[in-house]
Design a protein around this nucleic acid. Structure first.
Lengths: 130, 130
DNA sequence: GATCAAGTTTACGTTTACGTAAACGTATGC
DNA sequence: GCATACGTTTACGTAAACGTAAACTTGATC
């Protein structure tokens, strides 16, 4: 099967980051692209990892934290103790995400008010000019 | 009217930050507490500003950006041009917040899956031990 | 009046997440 | 055969958001 691959600039332009950023993620051990000679070759799995890292970034996660979340997916957890601690981790992450959603909703509410006030002010201006 | 006031450590402990953090916000011009002699005295308005700044932080905003959002509230915007640019700012902020909500929901979905898998694995272990 | 607790200024240190520049390799089109 | 685009390593720089330490005031308390 002809597995799709990506160059570093493919991914950089797809995600709107610089190649420096992607190399930096590799330095930090977040991704491990193959090499063909000198050049880095990225797999679809690498691509997804980058995507998830950037998703984490958008909601204010550190790189370390994003990777922590991503690594929840791969099942290197066998025994009961590990599974339980994993469940706890999941619940903590979830709690924080729910708090973030609340924060966002509050802020959205504020923006709605501001916009309404603006539109009313514009409207008033127009009326008074007639 | 006896306006409520707060000491720096009042606010620090209320919000779970250090006094250094609050002084830092002042250095950056984010808040402007009164002085009584040497000491800083915070008003309810100061308190709210800090609260909003920290809310912004939780969803990954920079201090500068949080202040930008906060400052949308105070009406120093008179003419039509300013009002329109303000509305645009509001819409951009809103777009980003909606994207963040999507990101969070996706991540929550992932966490749900992980937790379900964990619980199933635990369940399987228990069954096989009977 | 000595000893705290809480506050102050000044200043240097630290972590994160890249930016930027130098100096070099490689292959592709004209 | 040489420019040009794309890639590489190495390394120093930087902005944001505080931490940490030193050295000092200032009431409150025993």
């Amino acid at each position: 099967m002809p597995e799709t691959t990506y160059s570093i600039s493919d991914l950089a332009s797809e995600f709107g980051v610089t190649t420096r950023t992607i190399r930096f993620y590799e330095e930090k051990g977040l991704i491990h692209p193959r090499r063909e000679g000198q050049k880095r070759v990225y797999s679809p799995a690498d691509r997804v990892r980058i995507k998830l890292i950037l998703r984490g970034k958008r909601i204010g996660m550190s790189l370390r934290e994003s990777v922590e979340v991503i690594d929840l997916y791969d099942p290197e957890h066998n025994n009961e103790e590990q599974l339980n601690s994993l469940i706890n981790t999941v619940r903590e992450k979830r709690a924080r995400l729910l708090q973030q959603k609340k924060d966002i909703d509050e802020m959205l509410g504020g923006l709605d008010e501001v916009e309404a006030l603006c539109e009313q002010a514009l409207d008033d201006n127009h009326r008074s000019q007639r």
